[in-house]
């Protein structure tokens, strides 16, 4: 295996620097963080703009047009507007939890994003259990989301938090089961080696059922339509964001794109061969391009789907996704191990 570091070898993080000097390591970490942060900020911004633009086109509208070319700076203007507004924290809210929980969700997402390998030379660490760590951190989302919903003390936010936790808990299982089938085939929890083992076939060809299950489960986990019960605007006004205003609201909007980036990169790594691609462009370009296409697909679902009801979502998860992911696991075991 090309990337054979041992677990806990955090000091070796930027081994693409080719040095064991700790100073270089720290500089390497900083450069890495800056590159990834810029990438995913631009990615989130562009996807956010495209979301407004593409959905507008699907609905016979123009979308934003005034600020910047084709309204490209509209989201930026909205951000400035939100930051300039007064942030109101309700008296009934748990202030500490309220102020901590939303930044915490973003921090968790960014943490996961920083753990991904983006190319053979651009990865923070090559932990042998990288995938497991990422799944563990993703499992923290229900707690933080629940805290964010309940801390405002709003009833709509409370219902939204309950729904969100219910969905996350039941859709975590198929996610992990599908990941297990991938691990069976590739023989490693190391994401870099998972990507490397896809050089002949992308796993989407080997485990098509697994891909479909994983995609649906991720849509549900990141609460994109038709599973967007957390923000069900026709029922819960704005769900967990009902009482959230100004900078927190801007953060909360950004969380959506951070999580979408996270999910797209994860799908790209597990099923679409990560950074593998024709060599005339750098590997980093390919992984971001793949994630971008997946994100666009997720966006376009939003333009057409009706929202599902909570009992139906849960039943769908337990009756379809979990059996399918088990079948997928068995097929993967029989055929590829």
């Amino acid at each position: 295996m090309p990337y054979n570091n041992t677990i806990g070898n955090i000091a070796n993080i930027p081994y693409w620097m080719g040095s064991q000097n700790p100073l270089y390591n720290i500089i390497g970490i900083i450069i890495y963080v800056i590159i990834i942060s810029i990438t995913f900020s631009i990615f989130g911004y562009v996807v956010g703009w495209l979301e407004r633009k593409l959905i507008a086109r699907a609905q016979n509208r123009h979308g934003p047009t005034y600020v910047g070319m084709w309204g490209f700076l509209q989201n930026f203007a909205d951000l400035v507007k939100l930051l300039a507004k007064e942030d109101i924290i309700m008296e009934r809210a748990d202030k500490l939890l309220f102020m901590v929980s939303i930044p915490l969700i973003l921090a968790l997402s960014v943490f996961v994003i920083l753990l991904f390998p983006y190319s053979p030379s651009l990865q923070a660490t090559s932990l042998n259990f990288g995938l497991l760590i990422i799944l563990t951190i993703i499992a923290f989302f229900p707690i933080t989301l629940f805290a964010a919903g309940f801390s405002t003390g709003n009833k709509f936010a409370g219902i939204s938090a309950q729904r969100s936790v219910l969905i996350l808990l039941s859709y975590e299982i198929p996610t992990v089961l599908v990941v297990a089938s991938i691990v069976l085939i590739s023989g490693s929890y190391n994401m870099a080696s998972i990507v490397a083992s896809q050089s002949s076939y992308y796993y989407v060809l080997l485990v098509p059922i697994g891909f479909i299950v994983f995609f649906i489960a991720l849509l549900a986990e990141f609460e994109r339509p038709p599973f967007d019960l957390r923000e069900a605007d026709s029922e819960l006004i704005s769900g967990w964001l009902t009482d959230v205003s100004a900078p927190y609201y801007a953060l909360a909007l950004f969380i959506d794109y951070a999580r979408m980036f996270l999910g797209s990169i994860l799908i790209a790594i597990l099923f679409f061969g990560g950074w593998l691609g024709p060599s005339f462009l750098p590997p980093f370009f390919w992984i971001v391009a793949k994630a971008f296409i997946i994100s666009i697909f997720i966006i376009m679902i939003r333009a057409t789907a009706f929202r599902m009801r909570i009992d139906r979502i849960l039943r769908f998860g337990w009756e379809w996704l979990i059996p399918l992911s088990l079948i997928n696991l068995i097929i993967a075991y029989i055929l590829f191990v």
Binding site: Q59, P225, A232, S234, E235, R302, A305, R307, M308
Partner: peptide, 11 residues
């Protein structure tokens, strides 16, 4: 109201 994001509404 059923939760589609304005598409049918706009059409």
């Amino acid at each position: 109201d059923i939760g589609q994001m304005f598409t049918t509404f706009m059409w």
